[in-house]
Nucleic acid binder design. Structure first.
Lengths: 337, 337
DNA sequence: TTGTAGGCGTTATCAA
DNA sequence: TTGATAACGCCTACAA
């Protein structure tokens, strides 16, 4: 039913080998024959069968990304921007993008990675939300499966990656709210073993120290990177005896939850309470009030991760394998403008 | 390098045929052999090669969705919720989800559909943002490629689909703002040939008529379903001689843009100006102020579309092929609460 | 420059 | 119940 190279070959009275080579742009074919083949293929509406090609070439022209989220219904705009970047660049590079979601660290996650890697569903993978120690990195290295990541784990000392200097971003953020007159600065973070939690908490502490502010563990709360988590944590923080006048969050999603809580409580965000996030997602610009944040170019990072991955897959190690980006402080009304 | 059924067969001194059948759960194999095979497969970490299976079985166990968006960077939360639903249900049904984006109606879109369908990349497709007359429907029918859609085109008289009664949803919406005292009710829509534009505009007009309000074409504006479009359209509407005191939008994304414009202009949304959307995306709940909207369960619709599609693919036409859902008015502060 | 043929890993159709 | 064996559509040595 479907058109194969065999059909084209028959029409043109050529061998399937010749047709195949003509279509793939091999040099050892006469210009005239190639033209005839290409034209006929177009006419007949030929589309190569991917399964066959994959089976033969042992590659899939597909890259994968497994979104590390707890709940299936979770939609952080960080991820949508990230996935947009992946999708756009994958399409530029003529790769397909396979996407799934799995709660990090669970068996289900391991199963998917195993299926994708060992079942040859992808030629390479994009990782993010890295843990300090991350089994995915070990696994992929052991399977010789190419991957690139945003941030990195301790295992991946030489893996191609993009890093954002979260620490110094957070130092800047602390300085900024200090300058605006806020003194009791709280922090809502994420899971302890997450790389960015490590880096950003560190930046928070370094910032305090630099300004001569005391670190108070009562002002540090563990969120879960969701807006619900931010909402809950902030309600708790606000109700302690000597409550904070500023809340810095590990990511924008958390900060958006804080805004919700503060608005509910009738606090004047930017005056009574400063709130800031980290990521620079689009939503943050249109929140109420607009959110101060440390911007990392999520979309562009995603695109570059794909480019690096494709280089890895093709074995052309031309680009630098480790890119470090400085984040950029975006001051908006949530910290007084 | 990778483990194939051949390796298992060798280990167990069986034929590859026997191994294949044992693994696939065929009945004509002894219980004992099956156990040995399954156990050995587990031990050796066998994962079936999908390309080979696809090539042989002529199916991909993959469903596709091509997001109909103009700009690559466009991210409407309607789509993220929709895609979440698709992804979750696909995973339940043991299907992969292949995603791409393409501007509707352009050659690029046709190319992707052609590649996916004729290159056997997917077993079925999910469609949305249907046009009154939609080439995709014609194409897929002609190719005998299963698909399900949210809303439908004129061509798909008997295709499996979910429909939401937009018209009556909009009538309700008009009644609601009327009740709140708003009298000059505007509408910001989308591309003219879009099914939902047709239905929702119709509901808007029917609502006006029911209440004895005059239809005024100066109050109808064509947006593009984006928040930027809503922003621009509303600025224009607000500046006309006899401006509206209520703006109803074809979707939430548009309405969020209207909110932004109104906030910028210092209007008190819910008092000076009523604003409402359609979709019930999560973001609408947390906008400033929270947005009145006509809710359609986007996530659940997506899941059900996948279930229906899988039924189509498997040829088990058990379910009803046409599901009509009533939308639900969610009243929030943007129309006075 | 072109044709021939083997094989990628599976499943399915036969015999045994 | 099991074992051969032929496809599925494509790519690629190798031969012509």
């Amino acid at each position: 039913m479907t058109i194969t190279i065999r059909d084209i070959a028959r029409q043109l009275d050529l061998s399937i080998g010749a047709v195949s080579r003509a279509l793939d742009g091999y040099p050892d074919i006469s210009v005239e024959t190639r033209q005839r083949v290409v034209e006929m293929a177009r006419q007949m509406g030929y589309v190569p069968n991917r399964a066959a090609r994959q089976l033969r070439k042992q590659k899939t022209d597909t890259i994968g990304y497994i979104m590390p989220v707890e709940s299936p219904r979770f939609a952080d705009s960080f991820f949508s921007e990230f996935i947009e970047g992946l999708g756009d660049e994958a399409s530029v590079q003529k790769y397909d993008l396979l996407i799934s979601t799995a709660p990090p660290g669970q068996d289900q996650e391991k199963l998917i990675y195993q299926q994708w890697v060992q079942g040859h569903k992808v030629d390479g993978l994009i990782l993010d939300r890295m843990f300090m120690s991350d089994w995915r990195v070990q696994f992929l290295i052991s399977q010789k499966m190419p991957f690139t990541s945003l941030e990195t784990s301790d295992e991946g000392s030489d893996t191609p990656r993009i890093e954002v200097d979260s620490r110094s971003g957070f130092v800047e953020l602390v300085e900024h709210v200090f300058e605006r007159g806020f003194r009791r600065v709280a922090y809502i973070g994420g899971p302890e073993t997450l790389r960015i939690q490590h880096d950003r908490l560190r930046g928070y502490r370094d910032g305090l120290q630099k300004l001569g502010l005391l670190f108070d563990s009562a002002l540090v709360s563990a969120g879960d990177m969701t807006s619900a988590g931010g909402y809950n944590s902030s309600k708790r923080l606000i109700s302690i005896p000597d409550p904070p006048d500023a809340i810095l969050c590990i990511n924008d999603e958390t900060a958006l939850g804080v805004l919700r809580a503060a608005n509910e409580l009738g606090m004047r965000v930017g005056k009574d309470l400063a709130v800031a996030g980290f990521d620079g997602v689009r939503d943050a610009k249109y929140s109420n009030p607009p959110l101060t944040t440390v911007d990392q170019p999520v979309y562009d990072i995603a695109r570059q991760l794909v480019r690096m991955l494709v280089d890895e897959i093709r074995g052309t190690h031309l680009l630098e394998r480790r890119v470090v980006l400085p984040p950029r402080l975006l001051i908006r009304e949530s910290t007084g403008g």
